[in-house]
Amino acid sequence: MKLDTQLLADVTAFLNIEADMLDNKEYHQWLDLWLESGLYIVPVDHNATDYANTLNVAYDNNKMRLARIERLTSGNAVSTQLSEKTVRTMSRFRILDDVDGLVRVRCAYCLYEDNKNGVRCYPANLQFKLARDGGSFKIAEKVVKVMKSSQYLTTVSYLF
């Protein structure tokens, strides 16, 4: 197997920035990482493929992403008012393919949340479709397969 370590390094660097922005609530900069046509998806069923016709935990197009950031930052949502910073760790990056300027990558992920009931952790498999954009990328699709999403979660006051 031939490894493109440069692409892996570029992708890893980009996704680390994406996670760092979310941990530090730099939500407006985070919005700039996206293609306007991009989709942010947290499926209920990890085996689903037709996300548009399936119930998801979140299925955000550009309009919904903007609304969600407004919700997270406006102070109108009581569940987000006291939300602390989160800690995301990622590892096991793997490039799945690189076709027509679109890189598909997946990695292991865990989000730790400082919640009033304790520290909660949400392990997940992340899948991205990244569109090449000059020397960097734009997110075409982010799918977060959070453990237990098909059984039960708690309510969430941030983005995975």
């Binding site: 947290v42 016709n53 399936t54 119930l55 998801n56 935990v57 979140a58 299925y59 919904m64 609304a67 969600r68 919700r71 949502a77 009581v78 569940s79 987000t80 979660l153 708690t154 309510t155 969430v156 006051s157």
Partner: peptide
Amino acid sequence: RIRLHEHFQGPMGFGTPDDGEA
């Protein structure tokens, strides 16, 4: 209908988490 449901309901909806906090 699915999109409307996701908008308000569930762990990441725009309604349910605030109900849950209350």
